[in-house]
């Protein structure tokens, strides 16, 4: 029932903002105080987590790579899968961050055939596809939202928006990212419910972020396509926040405050959750280290100076006794 806990949590959050924003005091709370607090928590939290990781030493190159290491000149090596220099690492990181290359290698183990059962590994690209669709849509939606936070709206945001609405269906135009993000989130959550193995290992901390994101995307899309809200007032609120002169215009819809509050919860929850993989991916030792273990010497940074007693020193100390006992010595 871990998913039920998450579902109830998200519904309670939505209800709190929807009904809490009815009074003008509530609107100030949900429109000004909570957004500022959430952004402060987000930035401070991300810095804290990243600096904490940066303080952890990674002594050796962890070479869990998928390709041939560079060794002798006549053995062909794999530059991207098993890089030996900075350029190769940059390439591997770029492919990982932008295209989730290691997830592309995801396999599925299944027992096939009757009556002779065989254990078979097969390709499973759906998780990769769902993840890619979700993350890219989310990024584009995030950038599109700068139209509420910048005046005049930058040309890049306008261009992205018209590209996103290129299908020109419905009024206002259905944005491709809207359809993709909701579809991808439904898939990513659905696999946690339907697939027994994945369901077994799914915790509330897995269900909650997915449901939170789904509720953010859902309320946003509902406002855009169905209920309609006063965008001028919303932009005034947003511009007030980013210029540190907050105003709460009259007549903002409760659904808008719900959407805003869910986004605030996402920001505040971000640094303490698995969502920190946004920063964490850059700290993946299996991805960001060149595999040059044999070419360069790496010294463990927490090695303390070991006190050694060499044989020469030993002999110096006991030479007289050794000679008296007729033991051979190196130096007379």
């Amino acid at each position: 029932m871990r998913f039920l806990v998450s579902l109830v949590a998200v519904l309670v959050l939505m209800g709190a903002a929807y009904f809490g924003s009815a009074s003008s005091g509530g609107q100030y709370l949900f429109g000004v105080i909570i957004p500022y607090a959430a952004i402060a928590l987000f930035i401070a939290g991300v810095l804290y987590r990243v600096l904490g990781w940066a303080k952890s030493p990674v002594p050796f190159r962890i070479s869990t790579t998928c390709g041939q290491q560079r060794s002798l000149p006549w053995i062909k090596n794999s530059t991207l899968d098993n890089p030996h220099g900075t350029l190769g690492v940059l390439g591997r990181m770029a492919l990982e961050v932008l295209f989730f290359r290691s997830l592309f290698r995801n396999t599925k183990a299944q027992i096939h055939g009757r009556p002779a059962f065989r254990f078979v590994y097969g390709a499973d690209k759906y998780l990769w596809l769902g993840a890619l669709a979700f993350h890219w849509s989310f990024l584009l939606i995030f950038i599109r939202h700068y139209r509420f936070f910048a005046e005049p709206v930058p040309g890049a945001v306008l261009g992205l928006q018209s590209l996103d609405g290129i299908m020109q269906v419905w009024v206002p135009s259905v944005l491709i990212t809207n359809v993709l993000i909701i579809g991808a989130l439904v898939y990513l959550w659905g696999r946690r419910l339907v697939n027994p193995q994945v369901r077994y290992i799914s915790l509330a901390a897995d269900h909650f972020p997915l449901l939170l994101l789904l509720s953010v995307a859902g309320t946003g899309a509902y406002m855009r396509y169905f209920s309609k809200v006063d965008l001028i007032g919303i932009k005034q609120l947003a511009m007030g926040l980013v210029s540190f002169a907050p105003v709460v215009p009259d007549g903002l819809a409760p659904l808008f405050f719900t959407h805003l509050f869910l986004v605030c919860v996402l920001f505040a929850y971000f640094p303490v959750s698995k969502l920190m993989h946004m920063g964490g991916i850059f700290f993946s030792p299996t991805r960001n280290l060149a595999n040059n273990n044999r070419a360069a010497r790496h010294i463990n940074p927490w090695n303390y100076p070991v006190k050694v007693h060499t044989y020469e020193e030993y002999e110096d100390e006991f030479r007289d006794v050794m000679k008296a006992a007729d033991m051979p010595v190196e130096k007379e």
Binding site: F42, A150, V242, S243
Partner: peptide, 19 residues
């Protein structure tokens, strides 16, 4: 990260017209 996340703040303070 900080430059990107604070984009609205510095954009409106320099190029933009927040009021």
């Amino acid at each position: 990260f900080l430059v990107l996340i604070t984009f609205p703040v510095w954009y409106n303070a320099t190029i933009g017209n927040a009021s």
